[in-house]
């Protein structure tokens, strides 16, 4: 997909996110909006996935992902972003977004495989576990001599979890040069800025010290820069080391009053706020 088309898609995804969170009056718009450009770029441009469709017209989904690139969402609270991208990409009916976080839905508060939603390969929500899972998936692709890429997105607050660093030590040790991790470096978490809550300090130096190659993405809310960073990461693969993209984003990107604060990490907009947000987000592909 071309940049302009990706931007059009991302605009609709942002609308979906805000509407979903409003619809159930719960969920996490801030990080979802901040990571929209990346996850849109991955699914609509960068990743090679099985394009075949079933009789129902939706994409065929195999959890094993043989021959496919695959993506894990470790910071599972940004589930509305994941669900919108999966639905818009054709894994399931966009109408199902209306069930987000409601009883008997496949669109659980945090991504789950339990209800068999196509596109989800692992449950996430309890932070700090996704990089380890991605390690395993990348290891499996190596064992099978499958030349495909494993992507995993994490939060920057999430980097405070000890398990992240156990996983960070594993990937270079096993030369997982088919693994691309992305850190959403928005400098915000629930209790405030990451600098104040628990300083991550120099994430780049940390990952380098652990044996990773790094790519700086200075504006993860600029679609061209996102594409360039993904291309740069790909060019670094196959050299015996895993790659991490340190992606600077703005929490709440796209909705002015949700930006420059941690307050919208996990807060739902009321009716008035919804209208104000939607006024800033063009309906490009049709609402669900």
């Amino acid at each position: 997909m071309k940049v302009e088309e990706l931007k059009t898609t991302a605009a609709q995804v942002r609308r979906d996110i805000v509407r979903m969170v409003h619809g159930c009056q719960s969920g996490h718009p801030g990080g979802s909006l901040g990571c929209t450009d990346l996850v849109t770029a991955l699914y609509f441009h960068e990743m090679k996935i099985d394009e075949s469709k079933g009789a129902d017209g939706f994409l065929n989904f195999s959890r094993e992902a043989k021959g496919e690139d695959l993506f894990f969402l470790s910071n599972g609270h940004i589930s509305p972003l994941f669900y919108s991208v999966l639905a818009r990409r054709g894994y399931f009916d966009i109408k199902e977004m209306a069930t987000f976080r409601k009883i008997n839905s496949r669109l659980q508060g945090h991504p789950a495989t339990h209800e068999h939603l196509p596109g989800i390969r692992i449950a996430s929500g309890s932070l700090g576990q996704g990089l380890s899972v991605a390690n395993g998936a990348a290891y499996a692709k190596k064992l099978r001599k499958e030349d495909r890429i494993v992507y995993v997105l994490m939060g920057d607050g999430e980097q405070q979890e000890g398990q992240i660093w156990e996983a960070a030590q594993f990937a270079p040790h096993y030369k997982l040069d088919n693994l691309v991790a992305i850190v959403d470096w928005n400098k915000q978490q629930i209790d405030g800025s990451t600098d104040k809550v628990m300083d991550n300090r120099d994430l780049k130096a940390k990952y380098e010290a652990f044996g990773w190659l790094t790519v700086d993405l200075l504006d993860g809310n600029d679609m061209q820069q996102v594409l360039d960073a993904l291309a740069a990461a790909k060019a670094l693969l196959g050299k015996g080391q895993p790659v991490v993209i340190l992606m600077k984003t703005e929490m709440g990107a796209g909705v002015d009053f949700m930006m420059h604060t941690h307050k919208w990490h996990g807060t739902a907009p009321n009716d008035e706020q919804l209208a104000a947000a939607l006024a800033q987000l063009p309906e490009t592909l049709g609402d669900y």
């Binding site: 969920g27 976080r101 945090h110 789950a112 996430s124 309890s126």
Partner: peptide
């Protein structure tokens, strides 16, 4: 806990 779902 409600809407956050089974992970929590």
């Amino acid at each position: 806990l409600g809407e956050d779902g089974a992970t929590h």
